[in-house]
């Protein structure tokens, strides 16, 4: 028999202890997987039954009546269901549902969670708050400056989806600065908010920051805001190529021959600018 080298002389039994620990951890993991499945299935089933039970009350709320007093958990389930439904309907039905939610103090817990140190908690609260967001524009405006980019982006989406035209200037200013939001998301939000007049863009169409101004002018064109014509034409004189190009694109979209004079006056500073401007002049002239 060859004599063995004592492998771990100072910690006898370590290997066996580690193996036993591993076996226990593996067993526990397997058990948790199975338990998770069983518990989740049971909870989902219970929630589904609860939702089925409270669903008829939605019609009562839409009719403007007060639903019967419900047990605490059923009331919570009804709140969740009403919040989900409110984001899918429009007009009076939506108004009735959101008013009921406000009456139930639905917003309080979510407003509190929107101040959580955890981005995920803030995002989830914001998402749940979305159906009644139009009643609290200041809260959404605050979330546009959140420290987490994804939360800021989500706030922009909520603002757009809730048609918060009043937040358009704040959205546009988020193109630049410390807590920015990607331009594409801002554009989506502004288009979704659909401001009906250039006045709702505030002073962003004359903003000293050329990126903010260019985006504002671009979006004014995309939204076909006829009353933005003068602001857009003013952009043709900007020292920034981005602003000038945005103005040219927007004039093209508006298609107003009244802008021809401004276009012809424009001093182009690159072959690309010249080409685009001449194309637009031709289009407007031909009609």
């Amino acid at each position: 028999m060859i004599p063995s080298i004592p492998a771990i002389p100072t910690i006898p039994g370590l290997a066996m202890a580690l193996l036993l620990t591993t076996a226990t951890v593996c067993g526990l993991l397997a058990l948790i997987v199975v338990a998770e499945r069983i518990i989740r299935t049971a909870l989902a089933h219970r929630e589904e039954k609860r939702r089925d039970r409270v669903r008829p009350h939605i019609l009562t709320i839409v009719d403007g009546d007060t639903p019967a007093t419900l047990p605490r958990r059923d009331r919570a389930a009804l709140s969740r269901l009403v919040a989900d439904t409110a984001s899918q309907v429009r007009g009076e039905d939506r108004e009735a549902l959101t008013q009921w939610l406000i009456g139930q103090q639905f917003h309080r817990a979510h407003l509190r969670r929107m101040k959580s140190p955890f981005a995920l908690t803030r995002a989830r609260a914001l998402d749940r708050f979305a159906p009644i967001a139009e009643h609290a524009p200041r809260s959404i405006e605050r979330m546009l400056g959140d420290r987490d980019l994804r939360v800021r982006s989500l706030a922009a989406q909520v603002a757009g989806r809730s048609g918060m035209a009043a937040l358009v200037p704040e959205l546009l200013r988020r193109t630049e600065g410390t807590r920015v939001i990607p331009a594409r998301i801002i554009s989506m939000a502004v288009l979704r908010a659909a401001p009906s007049s250039i006045a709702e863009f505030g002073d962003t169409v004359t903003d000293s920051n050329h990126r903010v101004r260019a985006l504002a002018l671009d979006l004014a064109g995309q939204l076909n805001l006829v009353d933005a014509r003068r602001a857009i034409e003013a952009g043709l004189d900007s020292p920034s190529a981005d602003v000038r190009m945005a103005s040219v694109r927007s004039i093209q979209r508006l298609g107003s021959p009244l802008s021809l004079a401004a276009l012809k006056r424009m001093e182009t500073q690159s072959p690309e600018e010249l080409f685009h401007t001449e194309v637009v002049i031709h289009e407007l002239t031909v009609g």
């Binding site: 063995s4 080298i5 492998a7």
Partner: peptide, 15 residues
């Protein structure tokens, strides 16, 4: 198997 190392050491490697 041949006893060149202890089973304890092998068990640690296995772990």
């Amino acid at each position: 198997i041949t006893g060149l190392i202890t089973w304890q050491l092998f068990a640690l490697a296995f772990f």
